[in-house]
Lab assay of single mutants.
Amino acid sequence: TLFEALYDYEARTEDDLSFHKGEKFQILNSSEGDWWEVRSLTTGETGYIPSPYLAPV
């Protein structure tokens, strides 16, 4: 399942991933609570992002 960003987000740590509203992601790991490890389909980068900022496509 692909997810889309509902809002912009600016990374706060080196493990976070900055992204823009509308960017699409592949979920790599969603078992860590509200922070999911994802791969951006736009940039190819991986990192953690807050799951409340995402919605299924």
Rank of each mutant, 00 (worst) to 15 (best):
T1D: 12
T1N: 12
L2G: 02
L2D: 05
F3S: 02
F3V: 07
F3D: 00
E4V: 14
A5I: 02
Y7N: 07
Y7C: 12
Y7I: 11
Y7M: 13
D8H: 05
Y9Q: 03
Y9F: 08
E10Y: 09
E10F: 10
E10P: 05
E10K: 10
A11M: 04
R12A: 12
T13A: 12
T13R: 15
T13D: 12
T13V: 07
E14C: 10
E14I: 08
E14L: 09
D15P: 05
D15M: 14
D15G: 15
D15T: 14
D15N: 14
D15K: 15
D16T: 14
D16L: 11
D16P: 02
L17T: 04
L17C: 04
L17R: 03
S18G: 08
F19D: 00
H20Q: 13
H20R: 15
H20N: 10
H20L: 12
K21C: 06
K21W: 04
G22D: 03
G22Q: 02
G22C: 03
G22H: 06
E23T: 06
E23G: 02
E23K: 00
E23Q: 07
E23M: 06
E23V: 02
K24M: 13
K24V: 14
F25A: 00
Q26K: 06
Q26M: 14
Q26R: 07
Q26D: 06
Q26I: 15
L28F: 03
L28N: 01
L28C: 04
N29V: 07
N29C: 07
N29E: 07
S30V: 13
S31R: 08
S31H: 10
E32N: 15
E32K: 14
E32H: 13
G33Y: 09
G33H: 11
G33S: 13
G33M: 11
G33R: 11
D34A: 10
D34I: 12
D34Y: 15
D34R: 06
W35N: 08
W35Q: 07
W35F: 10
W36M: 05
W36Q: 02
W36E: 01
W36K: 01
E37N: 06
E37F: 15
E37V: 10
E37M: 12
E37P: 01
V38A: 09
R39K: 14
R39D: 01
R39S: 06
R39I: 14
S40H: 08
S40C: 04
S40M: 06
S40N: 13
L41M: 12
L41F: 07
L41G: 02
T43K: 02
T43W: 01
T43L: 01
G44M: 07
G44T: 02
G44L: 08
E45I: 11
E45Y: 10
T46G: 02
T46F: 06
G47E: 00
G47Q: 03
Y48G: 02
I49V: 15
I49H: 00
I49C: 05
I49G: 04
P50Y: 15
P50S: 08
P50K: 12
P50W: 15
S51I: 07
S51D: 02
S51M: 09
S51F: 11
S51Q: 08
P52Y: 15
Y53A: 15
Y53K: 03
Y53W: 11
Y53N: 05
A55K: 14
A55F: 09
A55G: 10
A55E: 08
P56Q: 09
P56M: 09
P56N: 06
P56L: 09
P56H: 07
P56C: 06
V57D: 06
V57S: 10
